[in-house]
Design a protein around this nucleic acid. Structure first.
Length: 452
RNA sequence: GUGGCUAUAGCAUAACGGUUAGUGCACCGGGUUGUGGUCCCGGAAACCUGGGUUCGAUUCCCAGUAGCCACCCCA
């Protein structure tokens, strides 16, 4: 006995499992994804964003220059490699750089401005996985390129807000302005001076950031750092005239739209290309409390130039699809269910099966929501399946029916069966479905009027 | 990248230093020839991988791997 097991083990082929940080999206989960994709498409239509698809790989240098070499994303999270032509390429860690590249490369500055684009698809970051954080994850991106006006910032935020609203997620926009290259250095100096006083108390990471990227200290989650940061000077008090005016306008538009927001001086974003408006989207606390932000974005007026284009103002936001899906599930927000089936086509015997494969086509062409049990033998097995699928009627086509030129219609609810002329089967089916539909409507009417 | 917790069939789980490794859901088959939902019977299916301790390890120890949680970061 033991020996047998031993042998079995030896011959057992290696089983493969998901590569770390990767995730299968199984059929039962697809409805959430479709739901979100639907919403995105509808919002894009409403606000005239056009879809753009970019390759998953780009030149590594593109991300280095746009996202920034001092960021975690570029420093340690990029899937970079040399291809066979010795080209240094990377799986995209985010969308914005690629969209900006496409905008420049295809001369979209010749289109009426601003150009409004959206994208949806996988991105890759070599991070340590945990719930809501994968190495391959999907992002939704909306970008408005070629216009500096604050109304664009507001519209991007509006789109984000509506996306969450429509999946019944209460969110608050955490918003800030991090100024522009004209006014940020002054603030950085003020901030540095302030932080230097507490240098010994700052965490190790923050200490390092003090000279390189002091803004990032603001969103540190270390307790001690937070304590220090609480009373730090705020960027908004040091904005230049242009940036201040711009920020005020953004907020005014948000007020006009009645979008709830919270001024949050700690929202500085982790990517180098941001200027002026930055924002993050947080779910309004549930019992869970975990799982940080759902999405974020901001203005990136300097990006196009950084990657070799003409100066081009732009603003956009990105949202994580996995995080949306898991929140929808957790909060049991309603999603569109897959279309239900009306008819199951069952067959018995070789001849009947032959007829059934063409009959299926005919039913489908007649706009009947039909499914089949062609791969199953026994009628019992087929009815079992029909029952699980929850169809209203099962059509039974056996040897007998074939000879008689008839077909049997079984009402799955009551179990009543009727034999009808095979030539009229489509008509008969439609008649019954129509009747059932009317009955359902009647019922709805009654319950709508009736006391509740 | 750092720290903590976990690891039994497709899923959810039980037990155990020596067992035919149990149960529920799901799956497949049967309860006479061609009838589902309930019921009954049967079947297939698991101790994450590699070392060590031991007469013996799924069980104890170590390492690896993966997942989860916190930090970091971010979507």
């Amino acid at each position: 006995m033991k020996k047998e097991i031993q042998i079995k083990k030896e011959f057992k082929k290696k089983q493969f499992q998901l590569v770390r940080g990767m995730k299968d999206i199984l059929p039962e989960e697809q409805k959430y994804w479709l739901h979100i994709e639907d919403l995105v498409r509808r919002l894009a239509d409403k606000y005239s964003f056009q879809r753009i698809g970019m390759p998953i790989v780009e030149n590594t240098e593109l991300f280095k220059r746009s996202v920034g070499t001092a960021t975690d994303i570029v420093e340690k999270e990029m899937y970079s490699f040399f291809d066979k032509g010795n080209e240094n390429i990377s799986l995209r860690p985010e969308f914005t750089a690629g969209i900006a590249r496409a905008y420049i490369e295809h001369g979209m500055l010749n289109l009426p401005q601003p150009v409004k684009l959206y994208a949806l698809g996988p991105c890759f970051r070599y991070d340590k996985p945990q719930a809501g954080r994968y190495r391959q994850f999907n992002q939704i991106n909306f970008e408005i390129i070629g216009e500096a006006d604050a109304i664009c910032d507001a519209q991007v935020i509006l789109v984000a807000y509506q996306l969450y609203q429509q999946i019944n997620l209460q969110v608050v926009i955490q918003i800030n302005s991090i100024g522009c290259p004209d006014c940020r250095p002054e603030y950085e100096n003020v901030l540095k001076d302030y932080l230097k006083k507490y240098r010994s108390k700052l965490s190790e990471v923050s200490g390092k950031r003090l000279s390189k990227n002091p803004l990032r200290i603001l969103d540190s989650k270390e307790k001690d750092d937070q304590e220090i940061v609480k009373d730090a000077p705020q960027q908004v008090d040091y904005l230049c005239e242009g940036c201040r005016e711009h920020f005020i306008q953004v907020l005014e538009y948000l007020d006009e739209l009645e979008i709830p927001y919270a001024l949050n001086s700690k929202v500085v974003r982790g990517l180098d290309y941001y200027t002026r408006t930055t924002f993050e989207i947080w779910p309004v606390e549930g019992e869970d409390g975990r799982m940080v932000e759902l999405g974020g974005g901001g203005r990136y007026d300097g990006l196009a130039e950084l990657i070799g284009g003409r100066p081009t103002p732009a603003v956009g936001f990105a949202s994580g699809v996995e995080r949306l899906v898991s929140l929808i599930k957790e909060r049991k927000a309603p999603v569109k269910e897959p279309e239900s089936l009306d008819i199951f086509l069952a067959q018995l015997g070789i001849e009947a099966r032959k007829r059934a494969i063409t009959l299926f086509e005919e039913l489908y062409e007649a706009d009947i929501k039909v499914t089949e049990g062609l791969a199953r033998r026994g009628l019992k097995a087929q009815l079992e399946l029909a029952n699980k699928l929850g169809v209203k009627y099962t059509l039974i086509l056996g040897q007998k029916e074939l000879i008689d030129g008839t077909i049997m219609i079984r009402d799955m609810e009551g179990g009543i069966q009727e034999v009808v002329d095979a030539k009229k089967v489509i008509l008969e089916v439609k008649k019954r479905l129509e009747k059932a539909r009317v009955n359902v409507n009647e019922l709805n009417k009654v319950s709508a009027i009736g006391p509740t």
